[in-house]
């Protein structure tokens, strides 16, 4: 029996013009993320990791290829349909946090819930629950400008989780964080996997990659490496230790598939 798929992509292509010369940021990528699976994408700067994530989340349109989300072909959806889909099915976490400056922390978190039409009281209650779980409930009434980087990212994670999306897309989620905040986020991601939500995380950070079930390596817009990180491997152990402030240690290891 095959495992249900959270997201699948076939032959994804995205080309940009750089100084008039077309550059393939994503060059025919095939990808499957199963339900409950955590997949890390690593690679050098400019290899197309973020573009891949943006394509899968409908933040950009592919030039070619198919995207199937939750069993439904979505690459041809309109902007509005993508927006509605993102509310319920996807959660985004960005390196730059991307919290709305004008909204308080709790308002940022409850925003996707309000967008799906949840009653405001229920949305607020759910937002507080998540923020409590993430340790930022005491910062609920603060504007993002008054929060530390780690707090902002935890608020962003809470916002990504509030509608219980099946897939979380995280783009360099620890890129702007210090070691302690990185550790907090890694622990959260580890929890996500345990709760059955799928996670596709793009990162330079080996510590982040080590929390995944699988590691994809990208270069020049294509996936060039595919590694499964088994339970008990150094990567998985690193994940277990993710709560520690100073992780360091080696990168992921495992058998090539």
């Amino acid at each position: 029996m095959s495992t249900p798929t959270a997201v699948a992509a076939r032959g994804l292509v995205k080309t940009y013009a750089a100084d008039g010369v077309p550059v393939r940021a994503v060059d025919g990528i095939d990808l499957v993320v199963e339900v409950g699976e955590t997949v890390s994408v690593m690679g050098p700067s400019g290899c197309g990791k973020s573009t891949l994530l943006h394509l899968l989340g409908g933040l950009e349109r592919p030039d070619a290829g198919e995207i199937v989300l939750d069993g439904r072909r979505v690459d041809g959806l309109s902007e509005t349909a993508w927006a509605v889909l993102r509310r319920r099915t996807l959660g985004f976490v960005f390196q730059a946090f991307n919290l709305v400056d004008e909204l308080t922390a709790v308002e940022n978190v409850e925003l996707p819930a309000l967008l799906v039409g949840a009653p405001s009281r229920r949305a607020r209650r759910r937002a507080f629950e998540l923020m409590e779980r993430l340790g930022v409930a005491d910062r609920a009434g603060h504007l993002p400008g008054r929060l530390s980087g780690g707090e902002r990212q935890r608020v962003a994670v809470a916002r990504a989780l509030i509608n219980g999306p099946r897939l979380i897309l995280a783009d360099e989620p620890t890129g702007n964080l210090d070691s302690r905040a990185t550790a907090e986020i890694l622990r959260l991601f580890a929890d996500l996997g345990r709760s059955g939500q799928s996670l596709l995380v793009v990162s330079h950070d080996a510590r982040v990659a080590s929390t995944a079930d699988r590691l994809l390596t990208m270069r020049d817009g294509a996936i060039v490496g595919h590694t499964r990180l088994d339970a008990g491997s150094p990567g998985a152990l690193l994940a277990e230790m993710a709560g520690l402030p100073d992780l360091g240690g080696p990168g992921p290891r495992g058998g090539e598939h």
Binding site: A83, R86, N98, L111, A160
Partner: peptide, 11 residues
């Protein structure tokens, strides 16, 4: 763009 990323429509 942040709002749209979390599900707000263009409208």
């Amino acid at each position: 763009a942040m709002l749209r990323a979390v599900g707000a429509t263009a409208r």
